[in-house]
Simulated assay, not measured.
Amino acid sequence: MLRWALIFFIVAIVAAVFGFGGIAAGAASIAKILFYIFLVLFLISLLSGLLRK
């Protein structure tokens, strides 16, 4: 039981380092950029599909 507690403690420390550091903010900004890119691509493909018919 103590072994599992230590494992979860180490996992929590690693998650805190990644969460409180700049990695989470960088990943969020990349996700926002990708969202807008795919939204534009979706709209373009939707419009081109409607114009072909």
Rank of each mutant, 00 (worst) to 15 (best):
M1Q: 13
M1P: 10
M1F: 10
L2S: 10
L2F: 12
W4Q: 07
W4L: 08
A5D: 03
A5W: 06
A5P: 00
A5C: 01
L6G: 07
I7M: 02
I7Y: 11
I7A: 04
I7T: 05
I7E: 09
F8T: 08
F9R: 06
F9A: 14
I10R: 10
V11E: 15
V11S: 12
V11G: 06
V11T: 10
A12P: 01
A12T: 10
A12L: 09
I13M: 08
V14G: 03
V14M: 07
V14I: 14
A15E: 13
A15K: 07
A16C: 10
A16W: 15
A16N: 11
V17W: 13
V17L: 15
V17M: 11
V17I: 15
F18Q: 08
F18I: 11
F18N: 10
G19A: 12
G19H: 08
G19L: 07
G19W: 09
G19F: 07
F20A: 08
F20L: 12
G21R: 04
G21L: 06
G21W: 05
G21M: 05
G22N: 12
G22E: 15
G22S: 11
G22Y: 10
I23V: 12
I23C: 01
I23R: 06
I23M: 06
I23P: 00
I23G: 02
I23D: 09
A24D: 07
A24L: 09
A24H: 04
G26L: 09
G26C: 01
A27F: 03
A28K: 13
A28I: 12
A28Q: 15
A31P: 01
A31H: 13
A31L: 14
K32L: 12
K32V: 11
I33D: 13
I33N: 10
L34K: 04
L34C: 02
L34A: 07
L34G: 05
F35I: 04
F35Y: 15
Y36R: 01
Y36A: 00
I37K: 13
I37S: 03
I37N: 08
I37L: 13
I37Y: 14
I37D: 09
F38Q: 07
F38N: 08
F38E: 13
F38W: 11
F38R: 03
F38P: 00
L39Y: 05
L39T: 04
V40Q: 05
V40Y: 15
V40G: 03
V40C: 02
L41N: 02
L41K: 03
L41A: 06
L41H: 02
F42C: 03
F42S: 06
F42R: 04
F42E: 11
L43R: 01
L43T: 02
L43A: 07
I44R: 02
I44G: 01
I44W: 04
I44C: 04
S45K: 02
S45V: 02
S45M: 02
L46S: 02
L46T: 02
L47R: 08
L47E: 09
S48C: 05
S48V: 05
S48Q: 09
S48Y: 08
G49K: 06
G49F: 05
L50H: 00
L50C: 01
L50D: 00
L50A: 01
L51C: 00
R52Y: 13
R52P: 00
K53M: 04
K53Q: 11
K53I: 03
K53G: 14
K53S: 05
